[in-house]
Computed example of a mutant assay.
Amino acid sequence: MKHGLVLGLLTSVISGSIYATEGGTIGYPLGIDAIYSGVMFPKGLTGMLIYQNYSADKVTDSHGNTPSGINSFKINSNALSARFDYTWPEAKILGADVGSRATFAFPDVDVKNEVNYVGDVGGSSKGMTDSTITPMMLGWHGKNLQQVAGMDITIPVGKYNKNDAVNVGSGYMTFAPYYAFTWFDRSWDFSGKLVYVINQKNMHTDYKSGNGFTLETSLGYHVNPKFTAGITGYAFKQVTDDKQDGVVYEDGYRGQVMGLGPYISYRFDAGPALIIRAYKEFKAENHSEGESVFAGLMYHFK
């Protein structure tokens, strides 16, 4: 059975891989692909190690307010994820390079939530969360414009128990087709990525989270050839209703949230690149509202 607003949000797992959740939020990692999202990596293998911290002390209802009955709420998550991109050396489709991707993440989540007449209905969970693969993505290279299109598939291999308030797994698959671009000139770059998130039914609970769009974007200024600083942001809007047992859940329980913050990137002489970004969330509905910090180290294996 669906846990309702409070426990539905408590199942949220904020990680470098996915938001594993029911109840108005999203099966996609908000903010992780906002920077250089339209760039296909060079031929061969590129690896990225990502650390993320997410914390929030606010949870919202359909009107953006704290639900009645909640005395206090706090979520804190630390996650480490590894992403591997491989651009196939000899492959070409429609004039584009062809690549594949796999992401594995390991979050540690702690939730405290005081509810009237019930007490603390939070909990904690850690371990491997659901894995995301991109069997094929296409990358086009222009003089100033880079473009990538593909579809991420999230596979529910993370630990999940429908009776637990907090899970690192979601219990359902997610399909996320996307298009991304990055435009460069000598001093500036601008990126955008549009994703449509299609959630499948959770067979453990007979609950189906609604589908939604995410938009991620960034604007960077190249201080010098190695160092870039800029702003980055994201927006998520659910466009179809949540359903349980085939029936619309409450008012549809549609989620939304936006995030905005600064970022820096630095490329070392030896080849690795470091990207650090931070987000402050706002305009949340049926979603937690907090802050996150990402630190990612990328390296291309020649």
Score class of each variant (00 low, 15 high):
187 S>R: 13
300 H>K: 10
206 D>A: 07
235 A>W: 09
286 N>T: 01
52 Q>D: 07
25 T>C: 07
195 V>K: 00
270 A>C: 14
257 V>P: 06
243 K>F: 11
21 T>M: 06
206 D>L: 07
152 D>G: 02
302 K>F: 14
240 T>K: 06
235 A>G: 11
286 N>A: 06
161 N>F: 00
182 T>G: 06
106 F>H: 03
16 G>S: 10
217 T>V: 05
30 L>K: 00
72 S>D: 14
150 G>N: 00
222 H>M: 11
131 S>C: 05
105 A>R: 00
225 P>A: 08
97 D>Q: 13
73 F>A: 11
178 Y>A: 10
12 S>F: 03
8 G>P: 01
73 F>Y: 15
78 N>H: 08
43 K>G: 08
285 E>A: 12
207 Y>M: 01
210 G>H: 03
184 F>M: 12
285 E>T: 13
16 G>Q: 08
20 A>D: 04
292 S>A: 10
238 Q>S: 06
118 V>A: 11
221 Y>S: 06
205 T>Y: 08
186 R>N: 15
159 K>H: 13
205 T>W: 08
275 I>H: 12
249 Y>L: 14
24 G>K: 11
227 F>L: 15
202 N>M: 10
235 A>V: 07
70 I>D: 09
261 G>I: 06
201 K>P: 00
26 I>W: 01
210 G>A: 08
123 G>K: 06
221 Y>W: 08
135 P>L: 09
167 N>W: 01
40 M>N: 04
69 G>K: 02
120 D>R: 01
64 G>R: 03
51 Y>N: 07
66 T>V: 13
212 G>R: 01
259 G>K: 11
